[in-house]
Design a protein around this nucleic acid. Structure first.
Lengths: 212, 212
DNA sequence: AGGGATGGTGATAACTTGGTCACCATGGGT
DNA sequence: ACCCATGGTGACCAAGTTATCACCATCCCT
């Protein structure tokens, strides 16, 4: 979305989305007008034109229900995270994959490819995708995606008072001890799932990836 | 689908499916007629009525593009497999989940919930879902879903001549040796992926499940 | 004070689409 | 030889739908 949508336009877009999810077909202008409590289909028409201008939808001219949503489908897969860059920065996105966010709870927001074996004993292996729910709140014992300085890491979290521990699931790796009054610990999200592609083998882990 | 579709009806259905995938909206009758090289929209109309009778689609009356596909979405999750019953028998299906078959290669056909830790060192844990591609052909070294007698099991396959081995990934479990001239080994499919729901914990593995 | 984007009413013309009728051809089953 | 389901052509109307006109109100910005 190049230009930000107004509140009303976002409402129209959300209505289109839910209509599509419920009925399996895009709404017509009269249908949209009825749902939104608008008397004239022309108001809808102009809203749709605004959404086209702002790149949110496409309209097929002279075609009934010719509305196409232009959102990117699927979840972004995050590979190596450039130092200091926000997790979802374009440079970190390796692609989008058709994973249904509602398959996991809480809702999945993105995928994070793991490198290394520090969570091996939790069944998280090199190259696996962690399914991440974006949140800054995590509870003790949850597997979190954390940012410590410039590094992004996946570990089990344990907090007691001002002391925090990031605990690997592999005796070969060391627990990371943090003093919250001195060190910065940012929670990027919590791991809600794992996806492994067993036949993806060929390119065996090229490039630095987020260390688990 | 209660009644089997004719070849032509299946073709119509496939056309609707691909039109929907490409444009995001169901086709109108004239559009279908044009794609299929049919001159009269009435032929389409009668085909659609046939598809409704056979339970393949629903039609919203007096609504443009009011075609709804009635296929079950997502992949079936197979839990415990009743002795001797085919893998996909209704009694074995615990539900359907929105997993995109094309996310894995070769294409995913169903999900199989694993019980036990016999594949622990491959990062396959108790309760994980194995993503399975249905095939009777497997190559050496692949993780297969195999039926030995009445048991369904997930193991790594190794065949040499008439001898076969089903190898667990956990030293606490034993390799299963088979003589193909005496024992029956049916390959149900190969594992192409793993999905783990980290927050699904609550019901800790109730009921017998397919042993890995 | 004026201009422009946004959000809306009401009406109309033109086109798209669904529903239906009459009629025809083919193949399988009785 | 007959019936019947399937598959198709051609034509028509009613309803659904898109597109466009004139006109109005509010808010923000210069």
């Amino acid at each position: 979305m190049e230009t930000p949508l107004t509140a009303r336009q976002a409402e129209i877009l959300a209505t289109i989305r839910s209509f599509l999810a419920e009925t399996g077909r895009p709404p017509s202008r009269p249908e949209l007008a009825k749902i939104l409590g608008i008397a004239s289909t022309n108001a809808i028409h102009k809203h749709l034109e605004a959404l086209v201008r702002k790149g949110a939808i496409e309209l097929e001219p002279h075609v009934a229900r010719g509305i196409r949503l232009l959102e990117e489908a699927g979840l972004p897969l995050i590979g190596r995270v450039a130092a200091g860059s926000p997790m979802l920065a374009i440079e970190n996105v390796m692609g989008r994959y058709p994973v249904d966010p509602s398959l996991f709870t809480p809702r999945a927001d993105y995928l994070l490819q793991v490198s290394g074996l520090s969570m091996r004993d939790e069944g998280i292996l090199d190259g696996d995708w962690i399914v991440v729910h974006r949140t800054s709140e995590a509870r003790n014992g949850q597997i979190v995606v954390a940012r410590v300085g410039n590094d992004v890491t996946v570990k089990r979290l344990k907090v007691r008072g001002s002391k925090a521990e990031l605990i690997p699931a592999n005796p070969d790796f060391q627990v990371l001890h943090l003093d919250l009054e001195r060190d910065t610990l940012e929670i990027e999200g919590i791991a809600v799932g794992v996806i492994r592609n067993l036949m993806a083998g060929p390119p065996p882990s090229r490039g630095r990836r987020v260390s688990a």
